[in-house]
Design a protein around this nucleic acid. Structure first.
Lengths: 107, 107
DNA sequence: GGGTTATATAACGCAAGGAGCATATAGGTA
DNA sequence: TACCTATATGCTCCTTGCGTTATATAACCC
């Protein structure tokens, strides 16, 4: 999940959300948006590939990239889990506050 | 969202999923898990704070941190959006493959 | 006030990551 | 075979980010 900490890589994943794209198309796109070179884009793709976020398959002279949804499941579940937990506690807390109970906060 | 690219910060957010914690409790926890010092933990908290992922409120001599669920909504929605888009395309693709149709791929 | 605890900031060093250019590799085509 | 396109890799440089130690700030307690 660390790999998605980079904006270029997140953008690549977004682009792949619409379906498969060739390395060249992706490189052109992020190259234009972020002003980086083809090798730079290629290296980002490698990081995503090695992290299992994307998949790649050679199709003739071109290499097609695609998202592996399972990888994103992990991200989504993480955020969901953390958020939901807290929402629950928030409710509980508000209930207590509504009761006018002062929370004792030791240690 | 870049801020969650760091494992220490993700852990801090996880810890806060259970509810508010003091800076000291958090520093002790991640200090033990990752072997980092109190100032290091404090800086991570600052990054999270400035990114709007967490909130902090002084409670006497202690400073309580808490998660801001909205920030996680963003993460969750991003992953959801990307994943769902692709799931749709995946279905379409599989249908075509099942038909034995060879996809001609020239952009 | 003086000491102690809790937390943040300052100053600095170091390692990792990301960028560029040049080049290798591989496939497609004439 | 020779050449062109597509993509990846090697090498090097530079910036960014994270860590540490020392210190500042602020509240609490005696």
């Amino acid at each position: 999940m660390d790999v998605l900490g980079d904006p270029v890589r997140r953008r690549l994943v977004e682009l792949l959300a619409d379906g498969e794209r060739s390395a060249g198309q992706l490189a052109t796109a992020v190259g234009a948006e972020f002003g980086i070179s083809q090798p730079a884009a290629s290296r980002h793709l490698r990081v995503l590939r090695e992290a299992g976020v994307v998949d790649s398959e050679p199709r003739g002279a071109v290499r097609l990239y695609s998202v592996r949804p399972e990888a994103l499941d992990e991200v989504e579940r993480w955020a969901h889990r953390v958020r939901r937990f807290w929402d629950g506690h928030l409710d509980a807390l508000e209930t207590e506050i509504a009761r006018g109970r002062r929370r004792r906060d030791d240690d």
